[in-house]
Structures are given as structure tokens and as C-alpha cells.
Amino acid sequence: MPKVEGKKEKPQGRWSSRSVGRPWQHRFFYLLIRFGGRRAAYFFLYFVVGYYILCRPDQRRKAHFYLRRRFPDVTPGELLVHDFRMFLSLGRVLIDRAAVGILGPQAVTFTITGKEELLALVAEHKGLILMTAHVGCWQGAMSALAFLHLPVALLMQREEGDIDRHFFEHGGIASPYRIIDPRGFLGGSLEMLEVLKRGEVLSMMGDRFQGSDRNVTTVKFLGGNIRLPFAAYKLASVTGAPIGVLVSAKTGPDAYRIFLAGVIRVPPGLGREKEAFSLYAARFAQILEDYVQEYPYQFFNFYDLWEAEIG
């Protein structure tokens, strides 16, 4: 629930979901995928990544905030290799996502582990908060939730001018999930509450926040302090809904693993103080930390999570 309508607070504008590419560059890749297949797009991706490595130090710097934490003793030469692998990984995920929409779901295989646990959580009839993060192909994870046989709502803000397409937009089909805009009335909080009260699925990103510092709590991540939103934990406390942390990772040329990385249960009556939710945000941060140990090049937050002013 990033939007806050209340006290004047420090605005937050450190990250952007907007793609760095130009519209024609995106269209070029979409055409490549359509007429040459995914592998042709992969081939051209090497040139694009090479360009970013050699000619866009500004973009490389954005990756270094994370990479220097993940690989603390890295040399400049090694950092260059990490940059390359990171950008290549991101590019492949974006191509795969587009391929699912353009070529059909058979373009990529999603293997889900934790289905039984997720079905058990849904069977509690308290709604289910699926928390994910900007890792792997999170939209792929969203596309693979049909087995839950429940409507899925996704809290998502799309920035104006963003040219990046979601997988379903390539295929010209309706969104498989209802999108709740955090810029709506009361940050979409009532819509989210409504979803959970109906026993449905609400998906939220747990690794970024927008708008206000008031609804975030500080936790440790990769040796430093970062701020994470606690709206999901508040909702869970109020509704009794369990939180399933669902992440995805690319595990092969056309294969993804989607897995339930943890279940977070938040007791009722935690009040409105952010400190009450730190424990649960810390659990999520630990899950992310475990994830990046296994998949170091699939963590796609290209901004300084560890801002100097965080105490």
C-alpha cells in the first residue's frame, strides 16, 4: 500500500519500473522472437549487453549497488564479468517473458514446487497473500497460478511512458489477474482487503516501496540495512491471511522453477507501529538473501537499496 494520504512525508523516488530501452528496440526484439524464435533474440541480446557494458557506465553503476554487496571482495575485472552476467540474465528473462506472450505458453516450461502447500493455504479460506519480488521471472510465476482455481489480484503501478509489455499483452488476451493500482483511493487498501475477505489471492511485491517512508520498516539484507514495505504483514495481521513467498528462477534455456520459498504467518493485533512488523519483513529479507546466494544474477533491483541515510 505505497500511497499514503496523510502526514507530509519524505517522497520516495529511488527506483523506476520503466524500461531503459527505446520503443523501436523493444519492437525489434519482439519481431525477432516472432520470426526467428527465442534463440535468435538471445543471439542479438549479446550485442545489446555488450553495448551496455561498454557504453553505458550509468547502467552498470545501477547494478553495482547490489553486486558489490553480493560479491564483497570483487575486483574491477570480476565486477565487469558480474555486470555482463547480470545484464544477460535480465535480458533473457525479458525475452522469455515476451516469448510466452508471442509464441505461446509452450515457449517456456514453468515447474512449480510447493503446489500442495499453496492449496492448503488457500483451503484455510482467509485469503492468500502471495508475496514475490523482482527476481527471476515474477510474471511467469503469476501466469502459473491457474491451479489455485481462484481469482488473483495484483498490486501493481505502471509508470506513464513505460513501453515494456506484459506477457499477456503480446498475445492480445485479457490480463489473467486483476490489477489494483496503488495510486487509487487509499492506496488500493480497501480493494486489497476486499480480495482477502473473499478468500481470494492477493499478490504483492515485498521488495520495493513507493510514495512514503511511513509504511516501511528497516531490516538487514546482505550485510546492510534496507527498507521494506510492511503493508502485506499489516494486511495479514488484520485478516488472518497467510503469506506465501513465491519466487521464480531461470534454471535452463527454456525452463523456470517457481517455488514457495516460505510461509509467513502474522498474528493479529499488532497495531500500527512499524516495529511490530520488522520481524516478518526480516523473514522475507532472509528468504531473498537465500535466493541470491543460489541465483546471484536474477535479483533485478537496479538502485541503491542501502541508502546511506538508513540508520
Binding site: F185, E191, N215, L235
Partner: peptide
């Protein structure tokens, strides 16, 4: 703020038995 709205909806139901069903 928006998080208080969530709490308030639940409190209204708890204290008055009245449900705010939707937007």
C-alpha cells in the same frame, strides 16, 4: 493513512457489527 483504513474497516466490524464490503 491507507494502512489505518484497513484497520478501521476491521474495527468498525468488530465494534458495530457493520461490514464495509467494498470500495
Amino acid at each position: 493513512d491507507s494502512l489505518d483504513a484497513v484497520e478501521l474497516v476491521v474495527l468498525v466490524q468488530k465494534h458495530f457489527g457493520v461490514e464495509i464490503k467494498d470500495m
